[in-house]
Design a protein around this nucleic acid. Sequence first.
RNA 1: GUCGCGUUCGUCUAGUCUGGCCCAGGACCCCAGGAUUUCAUCCUGGUAACAAGAGUUCAAAUCUCUUACGCGACGCCA
Length: 460
Amino acid sequence: MKSRFAPSPTGYLHIGGARTALFAWAWAKKQQGQFVLRIEDTDRERSTQASVDAILDGMNWLGLAHDEGPFYQTQRFDRYQEIIEQLLSENKAYYCECSKERLQVLRDELTEKGEKAKYDGCCRDKKLKSGVVRFKNPLTGFVTFKDAVKGQISIGNQELDDLIIARSDGTPTYNLTVVVDDHDMDIDTVIRGDDHINNTPRQINLYEALGWSLPKFAHLPMILGSDGARLSKRHGAVSVMAYRDEGFLPEALLNYLVRLGWSHGDQEIFSLSEIVELFDLENINKAPASFNQEKLLWLNQEYIKTSSVENLLKNLAWHLDNQSVDTSKGPVIEAVIKHLQERSKTLVEMVDSLKMFYHDFDEFDKKLAAKQFKDSQPIELLLTKLEVLDDWVADNIKEQIKQTCEELGIGFGKIGQPFRLALSGNGNAGNIDVVAQLVGKDRTLARLQMALDYIAQHSH
RNA sequence: GUCGCGUUCGUCUAGUCUGGCCCAGGACCCCAGGAUUUCAUCCUGGUAACAAGAGUUCAAAUCUCUUACGCGACGCCA
């Protein structure tokens, strides 16, 4: 069994493409089949190597590995040429010399008359020797096929026209290449976006003209933006890699994407192996779905919370580098990650929270400092106690805070809050004793002293 | 315009094929309470939907028809 993902390299890998790829991948994996990656680069004007690289990067980051390919259609031109010649010689295709201008006028006229704009077959029987090559689509009858997600679809051949299969420069076009490739590559399930549904009957006619058997088709509904319009840049990030940049875990994105249009009862969380095990074509929704950042964020948080530290560290590497955080001097990073994973929605947020353990800061948050740094006495007392603390572990630090409270007859908040601010600079820190342990003795003492200096400076 | 596809809480969806268990369930968001050393987490509860109309039936979210709305295709793009 084989499925494929066949993007055209005219931009980065976007969310919609990624979901199509995921579904095709999951379907192949579920059946222990092969997943083929094919680059549809026959449009020489728009295809770029940068886009190919971007797509490969995106697939790689998501972990959707292909078993075959990537195949490039531009390297298969001989094969397409062969098929075009065959069709021509069998009188199933013909040359057409109609100018683009004539075609445009024709379209305008038909639209104005309220008819479907399609080629009129002007050159069908002229036996020309040059120009574009058009496929002789049947004039009558219906093309009916069963789509795995949409059900039975039927369209009259009268709605279809003689599509161009080769441009005037001889290069083949999409509808021809996709048929030849899916056949040659033994693809038995074609999974793609439902914007291709209208092409399917034409392709079926091509399959039939070539005497080839049909693959199964599964057309996925589109992904819409929050306003119901087709997902685009103005809805926020559409590039898969932008989600990495924003601190999402690939497995969280994958989980979100698989639930966009597919369901398995009420289950929300799917590990990669569960996706492979449970995925099916029957439970794909027919209707388009809107992309919802909030739910993705929730899933990401769930994954960060439950992920192994090793996995987090692996994914964090890029962000650490990106934000120039040097973790060589300070606590063991695994311990910090463990502390932070309960309280980070994204990896970006985690790296942000992680900075205070490795980098010193010059000043405190002004508003908070004005509020918390009023009374030097608790901080002073705590500092003297911590200075002589030998065994620098959370429990002992906590004990010193408690004693400070008791000796001064104050509540935990009176010392906890200033301490938290002193340690973090911005007040954002988890369990204060654990944080202090991780920050380390030297840095903790220095920061408490810095808080004291602040109070001295600001009291009059 | 023509053809194709679609329509369950704000969003993702279960239920639809095989009518009754659905005055419609789960999740995200939001709101209210609780636990908590800020943040976060966690727990409890709440708001909120079968696009509209007609028909079939003892019974319809589920079957049929019509309407509306949305999306897509109509390229020498894929």
